[in-house]
Each structure stands twice: as C-alpha cells, then as structure tokens.
C-alpha cells in the first residue's frame, strides 16, 4: 500500500462508489431484506394494512403437507438435473473434443438450446411428449405398434422426464465448460500416461477426471442450485402435475402469490432461499476439496 503514490487514492475518492452502492442497495439488499420482513407479516391482496404476525406463516406452512412435498420434489428435481446435465455435458465434451470442422458445428448445435427461451423449450417438449405427440408416433413407427405412453402423465416418472428436458436445455453450457477444462490439461501429462500404457478409460479415470475438478465444481454447483430455482420448464410442460408430482417450490410460490397470499408466498421464497443456502455450502465445500489434488 505504502508504495502506491498518494495522489492515486485521491483520484478515486470512495464516494465515487455511492451510485453503484445505491443500485446495489435498492435492487439487491432491500428486496432481500423485504423477503425476510414480509415473511413475518400478513400482507395480502385482500386488505390494505400490513401487520406483523410472528411465525404464523411458518407454522401453517409446515403443518400443511404441501410445502414439505414441494421441498421434497424440488430437491429430487435438483439432484436429477445435476446428474443428467453433467453426464450429458461431459459425454458431449469428450465426443466433440477434437477441433475438427464437424465438431465445431456440432458444438454450436448443442449450444443453441442454452440460448433458447426456456418456456419455448418447455412448450415444444410438451407437444412432443403428448400421448399423441411426435415421440410416440416415432416409437410407433419403429416398433410397428401403436404407442400412447403419457410421458408427462405419470406420477412417478414424469419428474425424471422433465429433469431430462431441463438438462437437455442446459447441457450445452456444461459441455462448453468441460471442453474448456479438457483444453487446459497439458498434452505432456496425457502423453506420459499413454507411454506408460494407460488405456483410454484409465487416462480418463485417473488423469483427466481429477484434473477436471474445477469444471465439475462449477457445473455441479450451478446445475444443482440453479435447478432448485427452476420454474419455467416445469410450468410449460406439466404445471406441477400430474397430481402434484412435479410441483416445485417455485410453482407453488407462483400460485400462492397469484391468489393474493403475498406473505405466504414470501415465506416460501424465504424457505427456498434458506434451503439453497444450507445446501450450497456443504456441496461447494465438498467439491472444492476434490480440487486439492491440483
């Protein structure tokens, strides 16, 4: 610090930060604080006054089974998305690793869904997966029998189908990050492995996977925590159905808010916020630990 010329500090007085700070406070801090404050009130569309009610909202939410069910569904969904998105992403990255012209074109193709509107993706898949939709027609054509599987109508398996749709949309991003990770691995290390007679699988398992740790940290954390905030794709494909089997917390929040129960909706979003936070720290810690080998 002392080596820095004094005048430099005065060129950029601290109060220059004020505009940015104001934006940060108004658009990030205050809404977050409100999220905490309103959860303890009876704010609704039905009356003008807002009164504090203590932990009333939390008690009624946790005694009704709906919130717990939505939390469970959200967690299952997030784990499924994290698994599928990373498996698809790493498979694509390995497949398209070489910089050929064809691979470059294919990478672009797989990245296109990432920049598509999630709602549009959802509605397209909803049409494809209908009992009389294109997927069943294709299956019917191949097998020669009439297929009418309700892909989005099963109370057990639909959540897997929707998680795959979500992963399909985002796998291009995971692929890109894994590709970048693969590129940073020194060719010398791989060559040394090959000279020692390591097979493709051994190279992958013992050299490339460990060296990909930072990319895995990023991909798993963003997929897991991002999909806990999932809404659009599920809303477009199933609206939380069938029978509440895919009712993510955000869908529940959306419905509750729309019914004018603003305080309850805020309470739920606070619960979601806490759940993401509680999950984020151990997950990221665990994944960072894997990077210690580097």
């Amino acid at each position: 610090m002392s080596s820095r010329p004094r005048g430099r500090r005065q060129d950029h007085p601290l109060w220059f930060l004020l505009p940015a700070l104001a934006v940060l406070v108004i658009f990030f801090f205050v809404p977050t604080i409100f999220n905490f404050v309103y959860a303890f009130t009876d704010w609704s569309s039905f009356k003008s006054g807002i009164g504090f009610v203590g932990f009333d909202n939390f008690v009624s939410l946790f005694t009704s089974g709906t919130l717990v069910n939505a939390l469970r569904v959200t967690l299952v969904y997030a784990v499924l998305v994290a698994v599928f998105q990373n498996v698809f992403g790493i498979a694509l990255a390995l497949l398209l690793e070489k910089d050929t012209r064809l691979n470059r074109a294919a990478r672009v193709a797989f990245f296109v869904p990432v920049i598509m509107s999630a709602l549009a993706v959802g509605y397209i898949f909803q049409a494809l997966l209908k009992p009389e939709g294109a997927l069943n027609e294709i299956l019917g054509f191949v097998t020669g029998t009439e297929v009418s599987i309700a892909w989005l109508g099963d109370t057990t398996w639909t959540i897997v189908v929707v998680a795959i749709v979500h992963s399909w949309k985002w796998m291009g991003l995971s692929m890109l990050i894994y590709l970048a990770g693969l590129k940073t691995i020194s060719a010398d290390v791989l060559e040394a492995g090959r000279l020692d007679g390591a097979s493709w699988w051994q190279t992958f398992r013992h050299i490339r996977m460990p060296l990909l740790a930072p990319a895995i940290t990023f991909n798993v954390a963003t997929a897991l925590l991002g999909s806990m905030n999932g809404f659009d794709i599920v809303q477009a494909t199933t609206e939380g159905g069938p029978g509440g089997a895919t009712e993510l917390l955000n869908i529940f929040i959306f419905r509750t808010f729309g019914q004018g129960l603003f305080a309850q909706a805020t309470t739920m979003s606070l619960v979601l916020f806490l759940m993401v936070t509680i999950l984020a720290f151990p997950v990221i810690r665990f994944l960072r630990k894997r990077e210690d080998v580097l």
Binding site: P13, L14, W15, L17, L18, L21, A22, V25, I26, F29, V30, I33, F34, V37, T41, W43, K47, S48, G49, I50
Partner: peptide, 29 residues
C-alpha cells in the same frame, strides 16, 4: 471516516426504505 460514513448512509437508506416500504401501496381511496 469516509468508510464509516458510507456504511452509515447505506444502512440508513436501507432502513428508510424498509420503513417507508412496509405499507401497502394500494392504501388510500
């Protein structure tokens, strides 16, 4: 000194917003 000032200003601004914001905008009529 300046740092504490800014910190104070930020907290005050946030608090003011929370307090004024904590009433339903549809009141009136």
């Amino acid at each position: 000194m300046k740092k504490t000032l800014i910190g104070f200003a930020a907290v005050a601004a946030a608090a003011a917003l929370v307090l004024t914001g904590c009433s339903d905008p549809t009141t009136g009529g």
